[in-house]
């Protein structure tokens, strides 16, 4: 065994040498980002554990995770997560569909833009939470008003993103389509869609971020389940660990859904100048 080890090593050496830096950086980079929160958490844990603070208002990580585990065991956690995800999902879907449609119409058709855009911009100037009383009056205090609020939050960045992206498509590249005599639909499919895609993905991610923001608002206003309800419940019953638990889960879900969009769109955007990636390495 020992005798053929050098041979093996020799053959795999160049490959390994090439793979090593990238493997190192691939794992080391996220690690660096985690370092600071980890130190803070451990530090606080130590402070509470050694008795310098009782940790009643700011519970140590162990207590937060114990709360999460407790909620998970009783099945409560899943119920709340499902309720919140459902609301975000539906609101996001409605907001994206409306924003994409209207944004595309305004971007593509200048008459529609002149008719539509001033109104949308005026509505955008209204802080979205100002709609809450009206939505509750119109749609009731249950799911519909919450989903409507989230959809409104998602709508504006998507609308703006799509319209702006279409307006800024390079005229020179559109001319290439004209030279090859693309029909209207072919022009949209072969030129406009791919050209708009990067900006569209960005607007989806911004929209999703706002969706998460608005679901908290919607659930704080009145809900019997959902992560926002856990927040409110924690406040009213004086359970800071539960509040922190809900916050941690919000953070995880927000990051996770954002990552899903990023990963889902990555294969379609491989052609882009890898500016961000180049900077990282």
């Amino acid at each position: 065994m020992i005798s053929d080890a050098p041979v093996l090593q020799q053959s795999s050496e160049p490959a390994e040498a090439a793979a090593k830096p990238s493997r190192l950086s691939r794992y080391a980079r996220p690690m660096l980002g985690i370092l600071l929160p980890l130190i803070l958490a451990l530090g606080w844990e130590l402070v509470v554990w050694s008795g310098w603070s009782n940790g009643r208002l700011v519970p140590p990580p162990s207590r937060v995770f114990a709360t999460i585990a407790e909620l998970a065991r009783s099945g409560e956690l899943l119920r709340h997560i499902a309720a919140t995800l459902w609301r975000v999902g539906l609101g996001f879907a409605f907001g994206v569909v409306a924003g994409t449609l209207l944004g595309a119409i305004s971007g593509y058709w200048s008459l529609a833009r002149r008719l539509l855009d001033p109104t949308v911009q005026a509505l955008r100037a209204i802080p979205s939470l100002a709609w809450v009383p009206l939505f509750i009056l119109w749609l009731g205090i249950f799911e519909t008003s919450k989903i409507a609020l989230i959809a409104v939050g998602v709508f504006f960045p998507v609308y703006l993103g799509v319209m702006g992206a279409i307006l800024s498509v390079d005229r020179k590249i559109v001319e290439v389509g004209r030279i090859f005599r693309l029909s209207g639909p072919a022009m949209i499919r072969r030129i406009l869609l791919p050209a708009v895609l990067p900006a569209y993905v960005v607007s989806l991610r911004v929209g999703l971020g706002l969706g998460w923001m608005f679901v908290v608002a919607a659930e704080l206003i009145g809900a019997s389940e959902g992560l926002g309800y856990l927040l409110l419940d924690g406040q009213q019953l004086g359970k800071p660990a539960q509040i922190l638990a809900a916050i941690v889960i919000f953070a995880i879900l927000g990051k996770l859904t954002d990552w899903l969009i990023e990963v889902g769109s990555a294969p379609l955007l491989r052609w882009q100048d890898a500016f961000g990636r180049a900077k990282e390495t």
């Binding site: 020179k172 005599r181 072969r190 030129i191 052609w271």
Partner: peptide, 27 residues
């Protein structure tokens, strides 16, 4: 209007950045 028998090359290559070189040529 643009005609199948008339092609044009501009000052800039105007390649479609989302297509590979081969797909650009086959556009």
């Amino acid at each position: 209007s643009p005609h199948a028998k008339i092609g044009i090359i501009f000052q800039e290559p105007r390649l479609l950045p989302w297509l590979s070189v081969a797909d650009n040529i086959g556009f």
